[in-house]
């Protein structure tokens, strides 16, 4: 009995420190995000970091669906594009406030995801992949062909910057803090979600949908819900992208970008929020390095997808964790032998 009690206490203790560790990691990450601009010279790097922020939001959004619920989407760029276009069109053609446009963009995307979510998420595996891919391409064609609304292939320009009373987010510094404030919020909420009963139910669906349903998890509804959440976050990222870039064109929201998003999630680590950041960072920075080799990046993505899936299915973040765990155990065993 005493032994059981001790074991119980031990488990409770380790899980509590795990929660604390989670908070500390997030605080360190936030601090790093806040001070990084002070160590950088020139707007080029800040600009790259702004893109990393936007891509992190997108990767986290897709990860909720792909990494937690185990449901693939090869058409997520469509929600990103929808957010960008709804926001862009409402502000340029109807003079709406960018904040209001952002909210409407997120809502439109969420409603669309909720409606198509029911038939689409009934599909599994390859069929789901193909259906989401088809959805993405249909949306891409719509962005391209509704020239009167979207400006077609030549794009939509003159999108206003976001503004809070007299503060206009029109330079790299302000954009950086705007984007990263929202990115950090998205990350925090996603971490919370992933560690809750909803997060567990999603992972249960990914592992065994039948068993999850037997335990009372409404798998179908929950999948649609997380698909909707994911679409809302993606559309927010799209809206922010439109208002920081002030110009959008369909080329940014095509099939290739959907695949790039999947690549971010996979190489960062399925089911890891920080992994999504890592994946987004790598895939944003890589093309900058490979610029000399123009278009070489696509080959690297392909290779990374294959190699990661074959040899490191947990993504880079699990590789890092393994290394950290290895070092940690070394230190511990050394400390233990001294005691």
């Amino acid at each position: 009995m005493l032994q059981l009690f001790l074991k119980n206490g031990l488990v409770a203790k380790t899980t509590m420190t795990k929660e604390k560790r989670e908070i500390i990691i997030f605080l360190i990450f936030t601090l790093a995000v806040l001070i990084t601009p002070f160590f950088l010279r020139g707007s080029y790097f800040l600009n790259v970091l702004v893109f990393i922020g936007i891509n992190t939001m997108l990767a986290v959004a897709l990860n909720l669906l792909l990494g937690y619920a185990g449901q693939i989407s090869l058409g997520h760029a469509a929600f990103f594009g929808l957010g960008a276009y709804v926001s862009g069109v409402l502000t340029t053609r109807f003079g709406l406030d960018p904040w209001l446009a952002l909210v409407i963009a997120a809502a439109v995307s969420g409603v669309l995801a909720f409606i198509i979510g029911f038939p689409i998420l009934k599909l599994k595996g390859h069929y789901l992949a193909m259906a989401t891919l088809g959805f993405g391409i249909i949306m891409f064609i719509i962005f391209n062909e509704t020239v009167a609304v979207t400006g077609g292939p030549s794009g939509l320009s003159g999108i206003p910057n976001i503004q809070i009373s007299s503060l206009i987010f029109d330079n790299d510094w302000s954009n950086y803090y705007l984007i990263w404030t929202i990115t950090l919020l998205v990350m925090l909420l996603s971490i919370n979600l992933s560690q809750s009963r909803i997060g567990r139910a999603l992972r249960a669906i990914a592992d065994s949908e039948v068993a999850a349903r037997v335990m009372g998890v409404n798998a179908r509804l929950l999948k649609v819900q997380i698909f909707t959440v994911s679409a809302v976050i993606s559309a927010m990222a799209g809206s922010l992208y439109a208002h920081t870039m002030t110009f959008i064109s369909p080329a940014s929201f095509g099939f290739n970008f959907s695949i790039e998003l999947v690549t971010m999630v996979i190489i960062g680590g399925l089911g890891s929020i920080y992994g999504s950041f890592l994946g987004a960072a790598i895939l944003t920075i890589l093309p900058e390095f490979l610029r000399i080799l123009q278009d070489f990046d696509i080959i690297v993505y392909g290779l990374m997808l294959i190699i990661m899936t074959m040899y490191l299915p947990g993504g880079l973040i699990s590789g890092l964790e393994q290394i950290a765990g290895f070092i940690g155990s070394k230190i511990k065993s050394r400390g233990g032998s001294h005691a």
Binding site: I72, H126, I259, I298, I299, G302, L305
Partner: peptide, 19 residues
């Protein structure tokens, strides 16, 4: 898994196209 197969074949398709 179906997921890993989707990803590997997509990876291959990007690779072949890129080359």
């Amino acid at each position: 898994t179906p997921l890993s197969m989707v990803i590997i074949t997509i990876g291959a398709s990007i690779l072949i196209r890129g080359i």
